[in-house]
Computed example of a mutant assay.
Amino acid sequence: MPGTRAARRTREEVDATLQVAKLDAAELLPTAHCLAFGLGAHGGAGDVCLLELEPALCQQLEAGRSLVIRGDKEEQAVLCSKDKTYDLKVADTSNMLLFIPGCKTPDQLKMEESPCNIVHTEIFGFSNNYWELRRCRPRLKKLKKLLMGNTYEGPDSPKEKDSKCSKYTTEDLLDQIQASEEEIMTQLEVLKACVIGGYWRILEFDYEMKLLNHITQLVDSESWSFSKVPLNICLQELGPLEPEEMIEHCLKCYGKKYVDEGEVYFELSADKICRATAQLLLQNAVKFNLAEFQEVWQQSVPEGMTTSLEQLKGLALVDRNSRPEIIFLLKVEDLPEGNQERFNSLFSLREKWTEEDIAPYIQDLCGEKQTIGSLLTKYARSSMQNGIKVYNSRRPIS
């Protein structure tokens, strides 16, 4: 029952208002709230924003954690917790929402020892909309773009003496990337980034392969097992050639660290080394005869490792319809982030895809409750071709 600050209604006036409205007081809760805009009331539409939070986010705020809104002027704002990212959108409501400090719910009023049957309440402000959150994928493509602008080529590279080259601290990335801190740190690990002089850097691929080659040659010359490469000896032998922190970083990128009898060892991954070697071979060729590539690839990896096309998912694509069959570089991280844009890009590259071929290029688009099958159902149509199910675009691709 809105009113003015000066008007403090009596119970008789409230009952008279109910009678005019043809409402039976017996059918209502006993306590009536008389609402009034106070003389000092502020917080009108646009001055205050309401945010609808799921219980888990409310608990984080109550525990003293922060939620951060991220985005440049040209970007759609997102809200980030410590480990999740949410789209932040304005939702209009047909009912005016009133801000009432200290307002008590019916359940709270019932708990009072001497409940009042009339409460005079001052309105602080109002709004006709609120912000709603929807869980979304972190927008991480910009992260690689920033770091690739100044890759690390070694301590003696001329770039390291150029003060104009852009460098980014953790705080810089948290300020510019639309993702939670945990999602950003996970992606930095995926990108094989490391901190050099306080700044996050991605190693130039050729320099990364140079480090890896030093390590694999040392493993071969010492007749070590790839499952037990000692850190200390690697640093002693290779330290004069490259910075020790770079040798250790390369071991971390291509292996798993463990301790045995007080000594630190790395178990190197054959799949990761074979994949990197394939990228090195493919990056300078537009297309590569598949049979020839497989032969050269196997000859290029360290002795004892076996190459397999399974190692190249999301990195390279095989065209089995061409004669002879060919393979070419196609990295999933180079494709658009948006769902429709991703499918448009893939279908412009190839009209029809098998699920096996397209899966590595859309796996990262799956949300918490999405599957590759549900994505294909939404963005593609299926048909049979020579007894094999294939997928093509639902819309014309120019």
Rank of each mutant, 00 (worst) to 15 (best):
Q311K: 04
N129L: 01
K110L: 14
P336L: 03
Y168K: 01
L309Q: 07
A77L: 13
Y254M: 04
H33V: 04
C253A: 08
K192E: 13
A179V: 05
Y254S: 05
K164H: 09
S225Q: 14
Q283S: 12
D357E: 15
L79V: 12
Q187F: 15
T277M: 14
P55T: 15
T105Q: 06
Q363H: 08
T85H: 10
P101A: 14
E351T: 11
Y391M: 06
S308L: 12
L28N: 01
T186Y: 02
A6E: 14
A7L: 11
R8P: 01
A276Q: 05
E27F: 13
E261S: 13
L281P: 02
Q385M: 11
C194V: 07
L191T: 11
K145R: 04
S383P: 06
I215C: 03
E182Y: 01
L61T: 05
I388F: 07
T17D: 08
I184L: 14
C165I: 01
F293V: 09
E183S: 04
V48R: 00
M384K: 14
I202A: 02
L191S: 10
R323P: 09
P2T: 12
A41Q: 06
P106V: 10
L211Y: 05
K369S: 12
K252Y: 13
Q299D: 05
T31D: 09
L67P: 04
I100D: 02
C366F: 14
E160P: 02
P55E: 13
Y199Q: 03
L173V: 13
L241E: 13
L29F: 05
S308Q: 12
W353Q: 05
A291L: 06
R323D: 15
V190I: 15
L218Q: 09
E222D: 10
K142W: 14
T216Q: 03
I202C: 04
L241W: 13
E222M: 10
S269F: 14
T216H: 00
I202T: 02
D107K: 09
R381T: 09
L312I: 10
R65S: 07
E113A: 13
Q370Y: 10
P106C: 08
L290M: 05
L329C: 08
S81H: 10
L140R: 02
I372Y: 15
S114E: 15
